[in-house]
């Protein structure tokens, strides 16, 4: 019997590959949303496995707010070159030109315009009918009920009361013209699974996940980074601290936590004893109660 045992990670990998292949088989124009973060890195790795020895049969799409960490832009360029990816970048240039930024606008308005609207623009421009996303059900309470195939109407909106039941591994991918789906191959992964898999498969991730001495300023009991375009509140001083990031997004909205975990194993060790879920470092989730759910209904992931 023991010859035929599969570990948790083996099962998650097999399931994700199955999902990715189903979408490619049944949809006309799939695209993989690529956020540069660790979940995207894992999803990209799984997609490469799904079609090996062939190339990825779909492009990658990054929705860029232009306020990502500089290290993320470096990483994006490196990965695209390394794997020969068709990586497309979309910016909501109109909003950007009109002065949308995370300092003069509240985080809810900013993310709605630059991320949600930007995403919908990119999907419409590419006429994509299926978009892979790296979201996991363990991230946030409202995501626990998200399907693997998440249906969106012709406006990209999600209706929690109008989703299709998913039984066994039989996914119903039939659409009417204009409708689309978001697909979450990592639905059943937890944050720890992601890190364990990164370790097992030696997947490269943005170095910001590992602790280093960085220029930061205090924001409550967490730390916000200082970059040339950072606007620090008046009277606040920056300092150098050993910090790392548990999630990556727009640098003015992403907090670092103090940590000595400078290596992958140290990060996993910290994870195994972690006492805070990762989204606590995202300012956008805290705007209001149930905010993630609200964003999803409007078309965000």
């Amino acid at each position: 019997m023991s010859d035929y045992q599969l570990s948790n990670l083996d099962l998650l990998e097999a399931e994700a590959i199955h999902i990715i292949r189903e979408v490619v088989a049944e949809f006309e124009r799939p695209v993989m949303l690529y956020s540069i973060g660790k979940d995207s890195s894992v999803m990209l790795h799984l997609a490469r496995k799904a079609f090996y020895p062939g190339p990825l049969p779909f492009p990658l799409q990054h929705v860029d707010t232009t306020y990502k960490f500089p290290e993320m832009y470096d990483f994006r360029a490196k990965v695209a070159a390394q794997f020969g990816l068709d990586l497309r970048v979309h910016v909501n240039t109109k909003a950007k030109a009109e002065g949308m930024n995370p300092y003069d606008h509240d985080s809810y308005t900013y993310t709605t315009v630059m991320k949600t609207h930007g995403l919908l623009q990119a999907l419409a421009a590419g006429q994509f009918d299926a978009a892979f996303g790296g979201a996991r059900r363990d991230e946030e309470r409202s995501r626990a009920k998200e399907r693997i195939y998440s249906f969106r109407d012709s406006h990209g909106q999600w209706d929690p009361k109008n989703q299709r039941p998913e039984l066994w591994n039989l996914y119903n991918g039939r659409l009417h013209p204009g409708e689309s789906i978001r697909v979450f191959p990592l639905s059943n992964w937890t944050e720890l699974d992601i890190w364990m898999y990164i370790r097992r498969e030696a997947i490269e991730v943005v170095p910001l996940y590992f602790a280093a001495e960085r220029e930061v300023y205090a924001h409550g009991d967490q730390w916000l980074p200082v970059y040339p375009d950072t606007r620090m509140p008046a009277g606040v001083r920056s300092e150098r601290r050993m910090v790392r990031y548990r999630t990556l997004g727009c640098h003015p909205l992403t907090c670092a936590v103090e940590s000595d975990a400078a290596t992958l194993d140290a990060v996993i060790g910290e994870m195994m004893t972690a006492r805070a879920s990762e989204r606590t470092t995202r300012l956008i989730d805290k705007d209001r109660d149930g905010s993630m759910e609200q964003k999803k209904q409007e078309g965000y992931f």
Binding site: S7, N8, L12
Partner: peptide, 15 residues
């Protein structure tokens, strides 16, 4: 130790 723990988690099954 961490190595053993990580190794162990890599092997656990799922229910």
């Amino acid at each position: 130790d961490l190595d053993t723990l990580v190794e162990h988690y890599g092997q656990v099954d799922m229910l």
